[in-house]
Design a protein around this nucleic acid. Structure first.
Lengths: 111, 111
DNA sequence: TGTTTTAATCGTAATTCGACGATAGGCGAT
DNA sequence: ATCGCCTATCGTCGAATTACGATTAAAACA
């Protein structure tokens, strides 16, 4: 019983607003940009967006990096709020936080 | 005699295309994101976008950073292709490279 | 020529990043 | 309870960031 339907990526957060204060917007944009300032992290985001359902260590198979390195990249993405990681038994299910991506797009569009 | 009409920001580059290769796109997005991964650099970009005409060391007056620090941020933005710096006598006139910003927006939108 | 102004570069120090191997912890299966 | 798989964390290393003051380079102006 596990075709799909993991316990992951469920509520789909509402949607974070773009800060009215410009300084605040600059901080947020810089923080999100920093999270995507590495090709591996961009790859991971794309992987997670593509597979609507989430992935686990499949990422490790996709990227030419050590497991520990990828774990650190995932940590940075999570700390930036761009992804979420839910524990599913022995493995961890990561998925995109759509609201955060939308916020990033809005902030970039507002440049 | 300097109302405006600097020799800067003239041709307005055509428009760089989004790479078809995903790896290439990831590299470019990461590089551009890195250039904007600092609040001061985001501020600078906004300043240059706002003042269509370009600015010089007015940036130094706007930001709470030393002149040398700002010069380094400008260097990073220039190396990323996001801005251009034309020498105008003793001062340097910086302006946004609209094509690069457009490319960045397109890459982000394509996430 | 000499002075002032403007910006880039140099040298330095503290911090963070990026990558890896090794280790530890959690959970399912035996 | 033990074994094996999966992932996070730790410790380490070299390289890159960020910031600053001091210095240099170039150009306008006296």
């Amino acid at each position: 019983m596990n075709d799909e339907a993991k316990i992951c990526c469920p509520p789909a957060e509402p949607a974070p607003p773009v800060p009215s204060d410009e300084g605040e917007a600059n901080e947020q944009l810089a923080q999100l940009a920093k999270a995507l300032a590495h090709p591996a992290r961009v790859s991971i985001i794309r992987l997670l967006v593509r597979k609507e359902g989430c992935i686990v260590g499949d990422i490790v198979d996709e990227l030419p990096l050590a497991q520990s390195t990828i774990s650190q990249h995932l940590k940075q993405l999570k700390e930036a709020g761009l992804i979420r990681g839910d524990v599913d038994g022995p493995r961890v299910c990561y998925c995109v936080e759509p609201g955060a991506v939308a916020l990033f797009k809005a902030l970039v569009e507002g440049l």
